[in-house]
Amino acid sequence: MQYFTQLVISGLAIGAIYGLIAMGFAVIYKSTGLVNFAQGEMTMIVAYIAWTISTTVSGNLLVVTIAAIIAAVVLGLVVERLVMRPMLGEPLFATVMVTIGLAVILRSSINFIWDAYPHGLDVGFGRDIVRVGTIGVRTGQIAVIATLLVLLAAIWAFFRYSKFGVAMRAVAADDRTALLMGISAPRVHAAAWAASSVIAGIAGVFFAISYDLSPAMFQLGLKAFPATILGGLDAVLGSGVGGLLIGITENLAGGYFGSGMKEVAGFLMIIVVLMIRPFGIFGDRDIERV
């Protein structure tokens, strides 16, 4: 039982990281109808910025957190304004290709701006191990699970009760009608990119605290993408939950059937779920696949 529990806890921890990045995918899709293939790279860039702040300005948790959030907002807005907005009205395929190009540029920038060495993000928190019996978990892992749960609740409330959240849903549902209602679609898009960047950045920072920071970190995006497909590409909350499901499934498969199954398990789960619910567990039935 302890073996099972340890697998589930570790699965929740990595699943929470996947979930946060998956939510980033969904926020952009929900608002713009676009899949951002540079999501993993944006996660990585924010984490590297946080590391730079921690080593050059201050290693204080609060300072690093605030600075990383600001950096993530700026990154999201810059990408939206300089790269995505010129693509408004262009064919979807071309726009998706632009995000792939953006991914390659951001990935390569790591070596130009930083280096290829792995680094640890030390903010004086997250490395300690909490033990309950023989089960161990790092404080950073507990924190990322808690953060995901808080964000799930906050985003649910935002979309349901806030004016801007309702505006985002309106743009996602029908941007022309939303425009006629006085909602600025570009403004909504910009906010979505900024929010997505912040959510993904939080995941990156937690990953760097609990594991480490390396140029291979962008691959988290490849693991999170199935999570958002599983939860529903247009379901922000569902994507978060999808991340947790993928994390737990992967770990249980790896723990009971060997390392080889770990990588396959999540995708097997997606195939099965999509056969039954092609729009994901929590997605809308009329979702358009790209």
């Binding site: 340890q6 570790s10 921890a13 990595i14 790896g254 723990g255 390392s259 770990k262 990588e263």
Partner: peptide, 13 residues
């Protein structure tokens, strides 16, 4: 698999 970043289940095994 090359690129794997989480080794929790492997090390538990």
């Amino acid at each position: 698999k090359k690129g794997q970043q989480d080794f929790s289940s492997d090390m538990l095994q």
